[in-house]
């Protein structure tokens, strides 16, 4: 039976672990965020006195074409990017976890897009997917396709272009997380499965996937959040265009905050974004718990 003192001591030890990170985090991130949350209910241009707005900032969103387009695009982008990245990074990690020659090389190579500066790779990507003279369309022409996609310049293809680019850029990043997860699987499990005479797919399905469920959950949550927060990729590849075809929520936030200097309205959009992420994450938490 632990005494009360010992209990308090235990608590203090725990807090001492958290303190170094939490103090920095609270001061430099949490406080500004709380302030930003409050802004959603205020009118502020970053300079003049702050005024009370109540729910007006949210009400205005109901009739805001920019916001509506951005909301729809963000959901489409997330729904497209999350599963594609998840599957391809898992696939890549499993491939690279085999004892094959040159896997260090392949591992390094697949991490390249992630480490490279976005400014540079976006320029290259745009060149390669250039609708009229890019090598991708040139190849499609020679293969006999008549109607080649307009990629970033076509309303219907722009989002697909952004999604493909995101998968390409971030696949390596999540592949690394999966690799670390794969390293954590006890090899005895595979040995046991081998003795049972299972094939590769069965081992993948009944050993790898369940053993990776914690990693998958982590990857899924991070990916979802990252997708909802996408901004720089869109900025570099399509600037939200053509028209509003790839305008996403953070892009709208940026416009509202730094073009109109309507910080309250920008915060209101952020709250919607935040609520979306929260809902999706909670659903994932639920699913995760059920699985375990």
């Amino acid at each position: 039976m632990p005494s009360k003192q010992a209990h308090i001591r235990k608590q203090l030890v725990a807090y001492s672990f958290i303190a170094p990170n939490f103090i920095g985090f609270a001061v430099f991130t949490l406080v500004p965020i709380v302030f930003a949350v409050a802004l959603a209910f205020l009118y502020w241009d970053g300079s003049n006195p702050i005024e009370w707005a109540g729910l007006a900032n949210f009400r205005d969103l109901l009739d805001d074409d920019q916001f509506k387009a951005a909301l729809k695009n963000t959901i489409v982008y997330t729904a497209g990017t999350v599963p594609l990245t998840l599957i391809s990074s898992l696939f890549l990690a499993v491939l690279l976890n085999q004892g094959i020659k040159g896997r260090n090389f392949f591992r390094t190579v697949s991490f390249f897009p992630y480490v490279a500066s976005l400014v540079a790779v976006a320029a290259v990507w745009n060149m390669i997917f250039n609708p009229s003279k890019g090598p991708v369309n040139m190849l499609l022409y020679t293969l006999g396709f008549e109607n080649v996609p307009g990629w970033a310049a076509d309303k219907d293809w722009a989002m697909i272009t952004i999604i493909l680019f995101s998968v390409w850029k971030y696949m390596g990043y999540y592949m690394i997380i999966y690799l670390a997860g794969l390293q954590g699987i006890n090899p005895e499990l595979y040995e046991a499965a081998n003795l049972d005479g299972t094939n590769a797919w069965q081992r993948f399905r009944y050993v790898t996937v369940p053993q990776l469920s914690a990693t998958t959950f982590f990857v899924m949550v991070m990916l979802t959040i990252q997708c909802f927060k996408v901004y720089d990729i869109v900025y570099m590849v399509t600037q939200g265009g053509p028209g509003t075809a790839t305008l996403v929520l953070v892009y709208d936030i940026y416009n509202k905050a730094f073009i109109s200097w309507n910080l309250g309205s920008a915060s209101a959009v952020a709250m919607v974004l935040f609520a979306l992420v929260l809902i999706v994450t909670l659903i994932q938490f639920r699913g995760n718990r059920k699985l375990q």
Binding site: D154, K155, P242, G243, L247
Partner: peptide, 20 residues
């Protein structure tokens, strides 16, 4: 001016790319 400019740019982009 800021908000108007955002819309003008978007629609210009759409027209010039023959998306509208």
């Amino acid at each position: 001016a800021g908000e108007i400019e955002v819309v003008l740019n978007q629609v210009h982009d759409e027209i010039m790319t023959n998306n509208i």
